[in-house]
């Protein structure tokens, strides 16, 4: 799959502070790319470099295999984390202005705005000032403005903050639809469950360096430890536990059940397959639960960052 965006060896310093050090990322076309990292890791700086707000000291950025140039501004839509609109300007005028700055003609911008305003059912907001809207309402306007010029690359920094669960869902569906229509999305957030839900690729940045990047499924495969969660129905917990403990590496597990089960996490070495283990367990007790433990993004995040310290 071709990459829409490639950042190569980007380095940025502010005085003596290094915000980014030799960071490279590759964002495949049509993907939703999660850009993760703790606070202050350098995500915003990287995003600003992609948006040509700041220039990297070293390194280069390619969009669609071309070195990044001012004309590319039209191809990028950016929803910053620190977002805002002119408070005393009317919603419609403001949206038109921002759309025109992105190169849309007034007529075109009006048509597309009508479409989006109808879709979100906010047409009656057109002549309201931003200061009359609630935070969530203003966010909706901002989302529309970000995607209105149909950019190839969309960058969302914490897009769900400020939304109630229902509206967050609406926005999530819109993001997925934009992806399906061919846009590539870079998604920066601290909400790991939405990364889990949306992203197919991720990159992890910590202390101005990239420490992990790849397809989410590949990363999970690499991070899984061949561990299985099992729930066994038996009369004698004690003896079953010691039998199993002799054969496998076993740890207690915790999950909710309705009856009294022996709950364990069993990690396999390479000598035995999961099928063999299941067969063995079924001889010893009634198997009520058997599933592979796949690390969540949250666990991968915490593990990688702490190992990196």
């Amino acid at each position: 799959m071709a990459n829409l965006l490639e950042v190569q060896q980007a380095t940025k310093q502010f005085g003596s502070f290094t915000a980014l050090q030799n960071v490279s990322i590759q964002v495949p076309k049509g993907s939703i790319f999660g850009l993760l990292g703790p606070n202050g890791a350098g995500k915003t700086t990287l995003i600003r470099i992609i948006n040509q707000i700041t220039l990297p000291d070293q390194g280069s950025v390619f969009l669609d295999n071309e070195p990044l140039k001012p004309e590319h501004i039209k191809d990028i839509g950016y929803l910053p984390e620190e977002r805002g609109l002119y408070k005393s300007m009317k919603v419609g005028e403001q949206a038109l202005y921002l759309a025109q700055l992105k190169g849309l003609s007034k007529k075109e911008a009006k048509e597309r705005l009508k479409y989006w305003f109808d879709k979100f059912d906010i047409t009656h907001w057109w002549d309201k000032k931003i200061q009359e809207l609630s935070k969530g309402m203003a966010q909706k306007v901002q989302f529309i403005v970000t995607v209105l010029h149909r950019p190839k690359l969309l960058i969302f920094d914490e897009p769900f903050s400020g939304f109630d669960p229902i509206n967050a869902n609406v926005i999530k569906d819109e993001i997925l639809q934009l992806r399906d229509e061919g846009a590539t999305v870079i998604f920066s957030t601290h909400r790991m469950e939405s990364v889990e839900e949306l992203c197919d690729h991720i990159a992890l940045i910590n202390k101005s360096q990239k420490i992990l990047e790849g397809k989410l499924s590949d990363i999970k495969r690499a991070y899984k430890s061949n561990t299985f969660e099992v729930g066994l129905l038996t009369d004698d917990h004690q003896s079953l536990f010691s039998t199993l403990n002799n054969k496998f590496s076993v740890a207690p597990a915790d999950f909710k059940t309705i009856d009294d089960q022996l709950k364990l996490k069993i990690t396999l070495d390479n000598t035995m397959s999961s099928n063999d283990m299941l067969r063995y367990l079924s001889e010893k007790a009634q198997v009520l639960r058997f599933n592979e433990v796949i690390p969540s993004v949250n666990e991968i995040f915490i593990k990688t960052i702490t190992e990196n310290e």
């Binding site: 948006n51 707000i53 001012p70 950016y78 002119y86 408070k87 921002l98």
Partner: peptide, 17 residues
Amino acid sequence: IEEKTSRIIEVIISSVK
């Protein structure tokens, strides 16, 4: 200052210099 405090500045300068 208004553009700074209303935080619109980042949106604008992702479109213009």
